Simulated assay, not measured.
Amino acid sequence: MERDLSFLAELNQVLIRHIPREANRLADFCAKFCMSNDFVWTDIVMTPPEFLEILRYDLERVSSV
């Protein structure tokens, strides 16, 4: 059985890397969010507040280390 993989030509970049469980809150939010919503935000105003809160918290933690 042949699969159509032509969509891969449209990808600009894919990055896969290990993230420790304690730093996985943003990925968890994104996975749950995309199950019931569109995951394309063309403007920062469209970004869900919860996403920005988790991102801000994580950045503050990294900055304090």
Rank of each mutant, 00 (worst) to 15 (best):
M1G: 15
E2T: 08
E2D: 09
E2S: 07
R3T: 15
D4P: 07
D4N: 15
D4V: 07
D4F: 04
D4G: 04
D4H: 03
L5T: 14
S6D: 06
S6N: 07
S6Y: 01
F7Y: 12
F7D: 10
L8D: 05
L8K: 06
L8E: 11
L8M: 10
A9L: 13
E10V: 08
L11T: 07
L11Q: 06
N12F: 08
V14C: 08
V14S: 09
V14L: 14
L15W: 09
I16Y: 06
I16T: 14
I16N: 08
I16M: 06
I16S: 11
H18Y: 13
H18G: 03
P20N: 05
P20Y: 02
P20W: 01
P20G: 03
P20C: 00
R21S: 12
R21F: 13
R21L: 15
R21C: 10
A23I: 02
A23P: 00
A23F: 08
R25E: 11
R25Y: 01
L26T: 04
L26W: 07
L26M: 04
L26C: 03
A27E: 09
A27N: 13
D28T: 15
D28P: 00
D28F: 06
D28Q: 12
C30S: 10
C30H: 04
C30Y: 05
A31T: 12
A31C: 10
F33K: 02
C34Y: 02
C34L: 00
C34H: 02
C34N: 02
M35E: 14
S36V: 11
N37V: 12
D38L: 09
D38S: 15
F39E: 09
F39N: 13
F39G: 10
V40M: 11
V40I: 15
V40G: 06
W41G: 01
W41I: 01
T42A: 09
T42M: 05
T42R: 12
D43A: 14
I44Q: 06
I44P: 05
V45E: 14
V45C: 10
V45F: 04
V45Y: 07
V45K: 12
M46R: 12
M46A: 15
M46V: 09
M46N: 13
M46W: 09
T47V: 15
T47H: 04
P48E: 03
P48C: 02
P48T: 03
P49Q: 09
E50T: 12
F51D: 00
F51R: 00
L52S: 07
L52I: 13
E53A: 11
E53W: 02
E53T: 10
E53K: 07
I54E: 03
R56T: 11
R56C: 07
R56V: 10
Y57K: 05
Y57H: 11
Y57L: 05
L59V: 02
L59Q: 03
L59C: 04
E60D: 13
E60C: 07
E60K: 08
R61A: 03
R61Q: 08
V62Y: 06
V62G: 04
V62M: 09
V62E: 10
V62C: 05
S63A: 10
S64D: 08
S64A: 13
V65P: 01
